[in-house]
Design a protein around this nucleic acid. Structure first.
Lengths: 220, 220
DNA sequence: GTCTATATCACGATAGAC
DNA sequence: GTCTATCGTGATATAGAC
């Protein structure tokens, strides 16, 4: 790998930066390389010097976002504590990661749900992105199972709960204009982010706890 | 207005039908009118006899989906009962609506998050779709507020809870391959749908209820 | 109402000068 | 590494025969 340079971003990094924003807003097929190059301050053909094609650029963007998030989530899971506390740390870390980089949530929601047929055969970048996603999912999956086995959580459906967690975080921060209309204000202000974390914490604390159905199994 | 004809679907209805599936899978910019016409069993130019253009067709599809859902949700809200019971009925109705028509959730998720710049000025179909969405949101908003005022729900943030409900339903059924990978099976089997409803019911029953111990305000 | 052209334009990608 | 010029294709949309 060539050394990172913090001072002035290379063209390559500039392209990745603007591509992230554009793909997040318009999706893969909605973005033209022409506008993308223009936004990066380059001619259209210069993109092909840095990336093999549109698909490769797209997956490299996706990989960057997933890597950024995976690091934070793994760190949150590695902290000591009971499953519920670690789950709340995991959610907080995910919310922070999504809120900090406004394009992330939309890009993820698109990338995960989208169903383009990419012309080229399995790109290396796509495989790496899928691997990162797998690590994220495996981590939260294991945590939920641990919480159930310890009796801290009720006997919830782990996959359903994972889906609910994704929806409550990724969808929320990807919801754009609709979300702001529902919330009656910005999604990304520090106050809105703080309130979101607090609301999720309460919902999960009450909603996942082992309750009347499993009396006596609660532990401190 | 010309009256609908139930017997054999008109070309117009056939187009709407296949357009719904295509737009759901590929998004607005990902769908070409050529493939769309072919899937409907028509020549490409025939589409323009029934619809003014691609944008109008898209919004008419969106409007149909929203109308279908809005009717069910309004009916669920109109049933008598306590707020929690009516909320559970609302969620069940939404899940049923999304599960019954597989393209709906994806189309909605795209339509709500997507941010295309549609060339034409405010289309009538787009305004109608927005109005239906507004009615849906207003209904669930009022229900949550009523539950809080009656003391059935804790003092939750109504907008945050609306967002969570959307994420837990629309995202889930829009999650496609990723969702099936997480769930370890189909999203739309009657068993999966039943379990999803049951899980959401438990989460909301415990998570929104008033009177539980306060989880404590951690700083952050 | 459906069709066969066709117009016009943007797309991704390439070639090659500098 | 960036540029201009261009290729080939497919996009939306239109014109007009039947």
């Amino acid at each position: 790998m060539v050394r990172p340079q913090a001072a002035s971003p290379s063209s390559r990094e500039k392209i990745l930066e603007v591509a992230e924003a554009h793909f997040a807003r318009r999706g893969f097929s909605g973005v033209g390389l022409r506008e993308l190059a223009q936004a990066a301050g380059l001619g259209k053909s210069s993109l092909f010097h840095h990336f093999a094609g549109k698909s490769q650029l797209y997956f490299e963007v996706l990989e960057r976002v997933l890597a950024r998030i995976q690091v934070r989530l793994a760190a949150a899971l590695a902290r000591p504590g009971a499953p519920l506390a670690r789950l709340e740390g995991w959610v907080d870390a995910l919310v922070d990661a999504l809120a900090e980089h406004p394009a992330s949530a939309r890009l993820l929601l698109r990338g995960l749900v989208e169903d383009e047929d990419f012309p080229d055969e399995p790109l290396h970048e796509a495989q790496r992105a899928e691997q990162l996603l797998g690590e994220i999912l495996q981590g939260i999956h294991a945590l939920l199972r641990e919480g159930i086995e310890r009796g801290d959580f009720r006997r919830l459906s782990v996959p359903d709960t994972v889906q609910t967690l994704i929806g409550a975080t990724v969808y929320h921060f990807a919801s754009g204009e609709l979300g702001e209309s529902i919330m009656g204000g910005p999604l990304l202000s520090s106050e809105a982010v703080r309130r979101r974390k607090q609301e999720l914490r309460q919902l999960l604390h009450q909603g996942l706890a082992a309750g009347a159905a499993d009396p006596g199994l609660r532990r401190g």
